[in-house]
Design a protein around this nucleic acid. Structure first.
Lengths: 334, 334
DNA sequence: CTGAAAGCGCTTACAG
DNA sequence: CTGAAAGCGCTTACAG
């Protein structure tokens, strides 16, 4: 391996100082346009590539962002967070930054072990992607580097967060059902299970309230136990004309159940989901659902974290990103 | 933000030189055990975290590996490569290395644009994950840094590669069907489409040959067109007793087709898949299939690339990683 | 417009 | 066993 080209090499070739080369390559003031051009050209010819490590050390910036995802969200059937990570990766690159992924193992989360990227000063900030345990949140708070929560938040923490608008998405989707003539509308999901299920339920409820539809207890259908494990869905004794499901996967199960019970979707009963994941199009008919705006969530997160790196005092609080209804074939106008 | 602690700070506190601190913290020779302990303790107390950028510059190593995945393999329904990336990330961390993901856009691949991590010397080596275009391969070959192909290979390239053993996996799976009494066995897949479909076909064919079963042309069932788009599967006029599908997703479609035609799986007909992805358990009955050993593929890739960084002359050629049959309920003994 | 000096925080090679 | 010196490749602040 021959020695890498440095700014000094370029400088020597033209008979100029390395300071001038640095200025030229970084488009700084203080070099004539002519010389600038000449230097850039030569740099290109010589195949110069900047040594980021040197720049990093000098500036005290790594140009890396750590993205921490709890292990439990990274299974083969849960591609959502990895999708988000992809977007983060792409957007970061456009800003001259790079993502470093850290899968937080269950053991490390339990033992409150901080990621290695922290101890090695590998990153300028952290994006915590996906709900982490309370005690771990407290440890994270102690870190004196910029950080934010993505796709979850913690009421008692002062860490900024970016979440999808579960409440408004479910509200809009339910409004749509009402506009299609539905008034017997059930909600499927354990509303004590997670904050997104709960917020989606509340959006659904708001729509009912606005339309003077009474919330009937038997129209809140449970889908999972305390541990989050799916349970068999029990259909209400009087079938509603539509179901709002807290996620596409549950909508998928529900449609199977309805079919088994001899009902046709959407002819006998409409069903909507949430997430627009693989289950939305695996279901027959394909589900009308809410798509989370992954791209915007990623971009918002990056803007915020970069701002915080630039100015550690800046703060954004809780930012909410709106989703988008995807209309398909699982709703019938009645 | 208060100034970060350096080795010098620790040194000053004990009244020793920063050289000694460096040696102690790195467990190098030349410091008494006593002093070493004292230094480590103090470092911990003071919350010392090494400045990797400085180390990097000094050693000329970034401790990062670039992982390049073509965009077309990163859709929401294709979590496989992101699974692999997760494993790479985890294993790398155990070696004090970190992965930097680069999604290669279709445009960049077309225009032969190298990733930014290359121009910024952000990484010590590259793992190319997933088949890239021939012309791009040629550009990659020019890079004077360690690199390897993961999950694909190129006959005309001298770049080392690590692939899953498609041939042997399909061979074993077909052997299993034969042991279960099957002799009319069809293969589903366009055998001119990709090298893995082709290699899996050849493994299937080897098993037939070994068992003196004639390969019948109508038992090679097409599943996709030239562009790789799935087409409607046409069942052979005489139904075989078993189908070997080139992937789980196609097995899923096939089972649907069989059910629509009034056949029961596995009672009337057995079906096996390949990949053990989400479709394997989405299918009813759950599919017997071959699981790619993602963990081992990642580990092998990392070992190889780290060895190459250490010794650029080292070469491994084409390494094959064996898969594992997952037995489920889609095969009947006859 | 251009450059000499200094320094970012480490580690290696050498001297004691 | 311990440390002074040198240097990795950049950039900033300052002098000319």
């Amino acid at each position: 391996m021959n020695k890498p080209i440095t700014m000094r090499d370029i400088a020597n070739r033209i008979g100029v100082s390395s300071v001038t080369v640095s200025k030229a390559l970084n488009d700084k003031e203080g070099v004539s346009d002519e010389l600038k051009e000449q230097i850039k050209l030569l740099a290109h010819e010589m195949g110069y590539r900047i040594n980021t490590a040197a720049k990093s050390m000098r500036e005290g910036l790594t140009y890396n962002i750590g993205v921490v995802i709890p292990e439990r969200f990274t299974g083969p059937n849960q591609s959502f967070y990895m999708q988000v990570y992809q977007e983060i990766s792409k957007s970061l690159e456009a800003h001259g930054y790079y993502g470093i992924l850290h899968i937080l193992s269950a053991a490390d989360e339990e033992e409150l072990a901080l990621p290695r990227i922290y101890y090695e000063r590998k990153v300028d900030g952290f994006i915590l992607l996906g709900q982490i345990n309370k005690p771990y949140i407290e440890v994270i708070e102690e870190i004196e580097q910029p950080k934010l929560f993505l796709d979850f938040y913690d009421e008692h923490s002062h860490i900024d967060s970016i979440v999808t608008d579960n409440f408004y998405g479910a509200y809009e989707l339910t409004n749509y059902l009402v506009r299609q003539g539905h008034r017997q509308i059930a909600y499927v999901g354990n509303i004590y299970s997670t904050s997104s299920i709960q917020d989606r339920f509340l959006g659904y409820y708001k729509s009912l309230l606005e339309h003077n539809i009474r919330l009937q207890p038997e129209y809140i259908v449970n889908d999972r136990d305390e541990q989050g494990a799916y349970i068999d869905i029990e259909l209400p004794s009087v079938l509603p004309t539509a179901f709002v499901c807290n996620c596409d996967q549950v909508a998928y199960s529900l449609v199977q159940k309805l079919k088994q019970s001899g009902y046709k979707v959407p002819d006998d009963c409409s069903v909507v989901g949430f997430d627009n994941d693989i289950y939305a199009t695996l279901t027959e008919p394909h589900l009308t659902t809410v798509e989370v705006n992954i791209k915007q969530m990623a971009q918002t997160a990056i803007q915020s974290i970069l701002k915080k790196i630039d100015d550690p005092a800046s703060s954004f609080g809780r930012t909410v990103v709106q989703g988008k209804i995807i209309y398909r074939d699982s709703v019938k106008k009645i």
